[in-house]
């Protein structure tokens, strides 16, 4: 039915996410201010990319303590869909809705490039329109995308099918080439690549279309 995109001070991919949801899931999309304490009635909450609070302290750390995040956590606990893209992924790890942390890229530089990805699990609400174990390409644009978790956690993620996207050519040093993971229940996804930037043939990137097609199906 509906989706909400949370806007933090410093979010800068909120409009892109709203447009991609609007154009490719045919759902109505609310923008929700981070100071709000309640979510409208929605199936999906999306935490967009950007530099919430300037990435000061740690990427996503301050946004994770915003008033709206309690409602987001409650939504997740009820089984509602949550997607965090880039800075949104960082916020989800900071709120512990997802395990691990996103550290500075191994090369230490901000990196903006199209990255080939392997779909490791197409049996999720976020990836059902992709070919299982197929490949796609979605651009990344981040400074802190180097996924870290201890070995036990990584083993568990692997064992439980929680690794959804892996980089084909690891651009940032992420443990086990991880580009995107879900929580154990499978309703919360965090990913560093930006599917909302890959939905228009004129931009030369279309690897995100199947992502939004999957979401449209899951919200139907």
């Amino acid at each position: 039915m509906n989706a909400a995109v949370i806007v933090f001070p410093g979010s800068n991919c909120d409009r892109d996410a709203v447009c991609a949801l609007r154009d490719h899931t045919a759902k109505s999309v609310h923008r929700v201010w981070h100071r709000d304490t309640d979510l409208p009635k929605v199936d999906l909450v999306l935490l967009p990319g950007g530099f919430s609070y300037g990435d000061y302290l740690r990427s996503g750390a301050i946004a994770a303590r915003s008033p709206i995040m309690a409602a987001v956590q409650a939504h997740a606990k009820r089984g509602g869909l949550v997607v965090g893209i880039c800075n949104g992924f960082q916020i989800l790890t900071e709120t512990h809705l997802l395990p691990g942390a996103l550290m500075r890229n191994a090369g230490l530089k901000f990196l903006c490039k199209s990255t080939p990805l392997r779909i490791e699990n197409a049996d999720t609400p976020f990836t059902s329109a992709y070919d299982d174990h197929g490949e796609t390409a979605i651009p990344i644009a981040h400074h802190d995308g180097n996924y870290f978790a201890d070995e036990d956690t990584l083993d568990r993620l692997e064992g439980q099918g929680q690794i959804v996207f892996r980089y084909v050519n690891n651009p940032n040093g992420s443990s086990r080439d991880i580009a995107g993971i879900t929580n154990k229940a499978g309703n919360v996804l965090g990913m560093m690549p930006h599917p909302e930037r890959a939905v228009d043939p004129l931009t030369g990137e279309t690897g995100g279309l199947a992502f939004f097609k999957s979401l449209a199906g899951a919200m139907a």
């Binding site: 740690r58 303590r65 900071e94 691990g100 942390a101 870290f148």
Partner: peptide
């Protein structure tokens, strides 16, 4: 514990 450090890393 609540903000200044991320004890995961």
């Amino acid at each position: 514990e609540h903000l200044l450090a991320n004890t995961v890393i």
